[in-house]
Design a protein around this nucleic acid. Structure first.
Length: 135
DNA sequence: GCCAACGTTGGC
DNA sequence: GCCAACGTTGGC
């Protein structure tokens, strides 16, 4: 089981939008590093849903329900997407500020590479973020 | 294959 | 609106 963090601008697609749809294709990723991460995802993996630009915080947990397949929004056939479903809305969002200030999360990939839209988390980092939201 | 120019993302 | 980080493009 692996853990991930995926970013979306909430005015384009928010966690609540995902809850409403029940299941969605995580499409439009056009960055090779992010694509490699999505290819490594397995059914049942869990991911933090993070709102970029507006909110700038972790808001929910989702589950990978379908592994990498051609991105339906891509005509070239080069890019893949996964399918995700909502798992748990975090009781309290965990802001980037909080994550940056927490020594337990200092190794998070996203803190070093802020532009990477799909990044891995360790199990400890994942659990820590969920715990912070319930504190 | 290198590197400058330029575009995009994302935080502030 | 600004700027840093970083990916892409194109000339050489």
């Amino acid at each position: 089981m692996n853990y991930w963090l995926m970013k979306s601008e909430p005015d384009v697609f928010s966690y609540d939008d995902l809850v409403e749809k029940g299941k969605a294709e995580w499409d439009g990723v056009r960055n090779h590093a992010a694509q490699l991460n999505m290819k490594a995802m397995r059914k049942g993996d869990l991911s933090i849903f993070y709102h970029s630009n507006i909110g700038v915080e972790a808001v929910g947990v989702m589950e990978i329900v379908e592994e990498a397949a051609p991105d339906s929004t891509d005509d070239s056939g080069k890019w893949i997407a996964v399918h995700v479903a909502p798992k748990e809305k975090l009781p309290k969002p965990v802001t980037l500020k909080t994550m940056k200030a927490d020594p337990a999360l200092s190794g998070m990939v996203i803190l070093r590479q802020s532009r990477l839209s799909v990044s891995p988390l360790t199990e400890a980092e994942f659990r820590h973020i969920v715990a912070l939201s319930k504190a």
